[in-house]
Write a protein that binds this DNA or RNA. Structure first.
Lengths: 104, 104
DNA sequence: ACGAAGGTACGAGCTATGACGAACCTATGA
DNA sequence: TCATAGGTTCGTCATAGCTCGTACCTTCGT
């Protein structure tokens, strides 16, 4: 079962949902940036500088979260976004490498 | 440049387009079947038994073709569908393994 | 106390996508 | 010759997805 914040467990992560999430260029950019930052880094949604409004931003991060690609933790004022690197690697080995190496 | 039949060259295959193509369950099923058949096998669109009409089938195979995932050659009466296994593997190594191993 | 910043929720609009039927083309085979 | 089978094209429809604005909540810093 997914937890209260809408994160699927590792075993529940579905390929179709992950591929859908990653087919959007903005969301791919987010994952790309996280992959090229230090592992485990926590960022705000805003810090990615997506060229969309706040509400659209929320939408994209929800898609990423529900697909199981990122985790969002409550930090009072903000919500820390972290990449579920190990989970994805365990479930779909090599997938993140493709995103990391794209557009190089 | 793409050839007359709308197949992108290997270097032109774009990750976004590939992920979009693979985010549809029917199209993923096609690739899945091709991956579990003998390499280089040529099949008709109909042979996959997709639960949609002819025109919808044409639509899905066009998406796969334009994304660079399959090749379609004219065989007079029919059009042979083959998986671009090596091309995809060269461009996005490991991607096809994820599809092959999905739903097992 | 209170404004500013990060986020969410909801409703609305527009576009993209998947699905269909009908008409059509081409080759195979009876 | 001519029906049948595999595909394509076109037009249409419905739904899903991305976008926005507005309103709202919460916390941090002044």
């Amino acid at each position: 079962m997914a937890d209260a914040e809408g994160h699927p467990e590792t075993a529940e992560i579905e390929l179709g949902q992950v591929l859908s999430a990653l087919s959007d260029p903005l969301r791919r950019q987010v994952i790309h940036e996280l992959l090229h930052s230090e592992p485990g880094i926590e960022r705000t949604c805003t810090s990615f500088g997506l060229p969309v409004t706040k509400s659209t931003r929320t939408h994209h991060f929800r898609v990423l979260r529900e697909a199981g690609l990122v985790r969002q933790v409550d930090r009072g004022n903000m919500r820390g976004v972290t990449l579920r690197r190990e989970d994805i690697e365990e479930r779909f080995p090599g997938l993140l490498d493709l995103i990391a190496q794209d557009g190089v």
